[in-house]
Structures are given as structure tokens and as C-alpha cells.
């Protein structure tokens, strides 16, 4: 096979677009300025298709596919913005809000939270599902950072950035379904972790107030995950 880039032609939201073989629908949509909401996807990390916010419709198939992991194919017809998809995306956000304790008004990340701003973007004004009100731990044992599981949406960005970029793999996921919990090392206090380098990458990529820097409490807590693609580029160049 030659190294020539194989070009695929497809349609996204009635627009003809061209893509390279192996590209995801999300990548191509973004190149063409077509907005698909995402939560677990982050430029610079591998994709896991965990949050399902990026679901899109493919003509001829009743199955919805996550745009962040589904790759393009020739002649594909993709819709990113139908009533059905909007309804599903709203319900996904409502499930996230109802599942744990997201009290935006007192959250360190309020104003800088991807869950909060997506709720606004998708027009959520209330949660139709009953809140579960679970009792969840807050791990403040690390000298600089806190993990507040009340705000975690289990996107696993922290797990991936720590394993893939920092190379420490402090974080992982324990339990199943509703009992899932992000844990440091073997479910030990973050502050007692011998593998954590205290680099803070997990804090910067966390879309909510689940991981935060203690020095930013009360000051608004903007997150800065935008260094990731550059870091990856520098590594590739070496």
C-alpha cells in the first residue's frame, strides 16, 4: 500500500466534507467548524467514549455513535444536531447532575465548569430526575490538591492524563456502574501516594470542581488543559 493519504468524502449536517482515513467524526466536524458537544474527550488524550454527549446519527443506521471514537467512512451521512440528539444530550446531563452532588453555587469551579456551561448551552433550567444525594468522600490529604467525589462525572480525563502524559498512572477507576470511584494508587489517600508527582495535570484537565487546587478556593478556578496537544507535539518531535 502506498503512503498516500486516503481521502474520504462524507456529509455532515448536509455539508459535503472531506477527511483522511482514520479520522474521527468529531475531528472532521471540528475542522469544518461544526460544533458537537463533548465532555470526556480532550484534545491531547486518547478517547474512551465514556460520556456519550457527542452521540451523532448516521443515515441508514438506527444506532447512535459517539463522534469522538467513530471513524469516518466513504459516503457516510452524519447528523449532529437533531431533536432526538438534543433530547438525549440533555438527559445525559440531567443524569450526571442527579447522580452526585453538584451544588454549583458553592463549587470552586463555578463559572469555569464544563458540566455547568454545557447545561446552559443545551438549555437545561432544571433536572427532571430525582436527585440521588449519595454520600461521597472528599480527599483533601494532598498538600496542594483536593479530590471532591461529589463533583466527579467519571469522565476519566484525570486517569488518562496521568497515565498517558505524565506517565505516573496514579489515578484509576474502582467499582462498577453507580459505584464507580476514581481512586489514587490502590485506593489510598492522595496525599500518601508514592507515585503522584504533584504535577497537577489531572487538576487542569478535570472538567468540573472534582479535582481542584487548594490555593484557588474562593478565587474562581479556571482550568487550563490547552497545553496538552503542544506537549504531545514536542514529544513526537524528539
Amino acid at each position: 500500500m502506498s503512503d498516500a493519504v486516503e481521502v474520504k468524502t462524507l456529509i455532515i449536517d448536509e455539508r459535503p466534507v472531506s477527511a483522511r482515513r482514520g479520522q474521527t467524526i468529531l475531528e472532521v466536524a471540528r475542522e469544518y467548524g461544526i460544533h458537537i458537544p463533548t465532555l470526556c474527550h480532550l484534545d491531547g488524550l486518547s478517547d474512551v467514549g465514556a460520556c456519550r454527549l457527542c452521540l451523532v446519527e448516521i443515515k441508514g443506521s438506527s444506532k447512535l455513535v459517539p463522534a469522538c471514537v467513530a471513524t469516518v467512512s466513504e459516503g457516510m451521512e452524519v447528523s449532529t444536531n437533531t431533536e432526538r440528539l438534543l433530547k438525549i444530550r440533555r438527559t445525559i446531563l440531567e443524569l450526571l447532575f442527579a447522580e452526585r452532588n453538584h451544588i454549583c453555587s458553592v463549587c470552586v469551579a463555578s463559572g469555569h465548569c464544563e458540566l455547568q456551561s454545557l447545561a446552559q448551552e443545551l438549555g437545561l433550567t432544571h433536572i427532571r430526575l430525582p436527585y440521588r444525594n449519595p454520600q461521597l468522600p472528599v480527599d483533601a490529604s494532598h498538600e496542594r490538591f483536593t479530590a471532591d467525589h461529589n463533583r466527579c462525572i467519571l469522565c476519566t480525563r484525570c486517569v488518562r492524563v496521568c497515565a498517558e502524559v505524565e506517565g505516573a498512572h496514579v489515578w484509576d477507576v474502582m467499582g462498577r456502574g453507580i459505584d464507580c470511584l476514581i481512586i489514587s494508587d490502590l485506593h489510598e489517600d492522595w496525599g500518601a501516594s508514592t507515585s503522584c508527582t504533584s504535577c497537577g495535570k489531572c487538576v487542569e484537565v478535570c472538567p468540573t470542581g472534582a479535582l481542584f487546587n487548594k490555593s484557588k478556593i474562593g478565587s474562581g478556578h479556571p482550568k487550563d488543559p490547552y497545553f496538552l496537544p503542544f506537549l504531545n507535539q514536542m514529544r513526537d518531535a524528539r
Binding site: 452532588n101 451544588i103 453555587s105 433550567t125 432544571h126 436527585y131 444525594n133
Partner: peptide
């Protein structure tokens, strides 16, 4: 009209729910 987060979501008063 549910006015404000406490009426809309439970907000701060609902922080006692887990305990």
C-alpha cells in the same frame, strides 16, 4: 416561578441530604 437555585435544584439546603 421557581426563583433561584434552592427552589430549582435544592442547592445549599440540600447539602444535608446525604447525611
Amino acid at each position: 416561578v421557581a426563583m433561584g437555585d434552592c427552589a430549582v435544584t435544592g442547592n445549599v439546603p440540600s447539602m444535608r441530604n446525604p447525611i
